[in-house]
Amino acid sequence: MVPTSFYIFLAALLFTIGAVAVLVRRNTLIIYMAVELMLNSANLAFVAFARQFGDISGQLFVFFVITIAAAEVAVGLALIVTIFHTKHSVDIDAMHELKG
């Protein structure tokens, strides 16, 4: 059986890739994909721990995270579409209206 720590290392790796991608990529859609990767790395960690503990509540959490991620997509994509109408771009560098 694969030890739980392997899953956690993989989850941590995915989380790091997601976090770095959010910081370096310029396209909002890619950034949002990276955020999804972060959320799913949490899901992986949850199911791995849940199996280790033989506890259902960790698996339960995953369903909530998936639901929340879906709700976030609904709001996020709507925002991205709206901003594409205005700016004809979804590049983060095109967002320069607000400066101090």
């Binding site: 976090a19 959010v22 949002y32 955020v35 959320l39 959490f61 929340i68």
Partner: peptide, 15 residues
Amino acid sequence: LLGAFASGFMAFGIA
């Protein structure tokens, strides 16, 4: 985007 980024941290931290 930053709020979703933060909730990623939240979820992984909770895990």
